[in-house]
Every structure is written in C-alpha cells, then in structure tokens.
Design a protein around this nucleic acid. Structure first.
Lengths: 112, 112
DNA sequence: GCATTATTTCCATATTTATGGAAATATAGA
DNA sequence: TCTATATTTCCATAAATATGGAAATAATGC
C-alpha cells in the first residue's frame, strides 16, 4: 500500500463527522444506508453530509449505489482492513506491545 | 477510548511528513532519535519539524526526553496499539473480512 | 408534463493546518 | 563568559478543509 493512499484514508477518518459516518456504515453492514438516513441519525445538513461522503468515497473507504431515488452508502471493509494492516506493519513493526489483543470480534465478548 | 482522542491521533498521522516521522521513530525503537537526526533524514526544516513533532506529541503518539543538548523523540507504541484496537473494534465491528491477517510480526515472515 | 423527494453542486465564508525564515531559548564545553 | 550547537517559538503567508443555504440535478409516481 502506498503511503499516499494511507494518508488519504487516514485523513478521511480523521474527522469527527466522517468517523461517525463510517462507524454507522460499519454497523449497518453490507446493505448500507441511504444518505438521508445518515444525515438524519447524525444530524448533519445535506450539503455538509454530501461533502463528507465524497471525501470517504474518494478515499475508497465507502461505496455507493443507487436504489430508486435513494443512494445507499456502504463501508468498504477490505479498504479498512488494508489500512489497518499497513499501520500494523509500518507503524508497529513487530513491536509486540503494539499488536497482541486487537480484539477483532467483540460481539462474542458478552456471551458467558 | 474517546472518539475525540481517536480523531486527534488519526489527524496526527494523516499527514505525509508526520506519518514518515512516526514510521522512522517506530524503526528507531525504544531509544528513539534526536530531532535533528529526524530532520536530516527526512529533509525537513527545523521549525517545520518542530511543529510536526508537537502535533504528534500532543496527540500522545510520541514522547520526548532531553539528553544533553539533544531532545530524543520516541514512538509511543501503546498509544498506537490502543488506536488500532479502537479502529478494529469500532470500524470493523466483527466483520471477519476486516480482521484476519493483520500480519503483526512481519520479521518472522522470511524465516523458512 | 408536473409535483415530490433525494441528493448533489455551487458558492461564500470561516477555520484550521502547513511552511519556513528569523529570532529566542537552552545546553554544554573551552 | 563567550561561542557553538540543538531545538523551539514567533510570525507572516499560503493552502487546505469544513460549513450550510440556495439552486441545480436526478428519479419516481400521478
């Protein structure tokens, strides 16, 4: 992965509103959410939201598809995976303290 | 981890020069590097470097200590670990495609 | 074709961030 | 104390980013 790509993607999520948008889309799963629904839930005006969605999509972290009058946005898991792998390899570089318990599957946590 | 903290730390590394600085410090290990050495290797003017180092340190991603006339900067592995864990948990949320092969210890890769 | 709804683009504005020279500060050695 | 070295702070400037209303575009159903 190019450093430039990493910087672009990090910039995309290095912003309160966009990080929240991305988290919401991750929760939404493969079906994603229409722009309007995102704006409603996060209380973001349409034009501002559109700007942020463009940033995320430009960075390759989200995708969109049209469904009738709605445009559904989805999180691009592969891209996030690649970014995390880049950070782990380049910014932890085998330092054990940096990698041990990433706790990938928290949904299994509260099952006694 | 607070979302605000994540945004601050992501912003810190979402910049070409700072990401390179951080990577260099990760490679440098626990001893770290004096500011001048970083600037020399990355060809960054002193005042600009100082600005970026302040950003990284303010975000908690680096620390500094004075050694005679030099100020040594070190990467804060724990902080990066926490940030990666946050991203994994909040921005992958159990999506298997997002977590499988983070390849934490690449230095063991080429040992057949 | 017209009205309705969803989203984007346009635009002005405000704010933040990045850059680097020059001066200031700090440490150490002669 | 004087000088050299390391780093930071100050400052002006440039560039990028964020915000949201208003208008434009696109899709649907009547």
């Amino acid at each position: 992965m190019e450093t430039t790509t990493a910087v672009t993607q990090l910039s995309a999520i290095a912003q309160e509103a966009r990080l929240e948008i991305f988290r919401l889309l991750v929760q939404a799963g493969a079906e994603g959410l229409p722009a309007g629904s995102i704006g409603e839930q996060l209380k973001i005006p349409a034009s501002t939201l559109s700007f942020h969605l463009k940033e995320l999509t430009h960075a390759g972290l989200t995708s969109s598809r049209q469904v009738s009058r709605f445009i559904y946005y989805t999180a691009n898991y592969e891209a996030m995976n690649t970014l995390l792998a880049y950070l782990t390899q380049n910014c932890c570089a085998g330092q054990a303290v940096c990698c041990p318990d990433l706790n990938c599957h928290p949904e299994t946590e509260n099952n006694p």
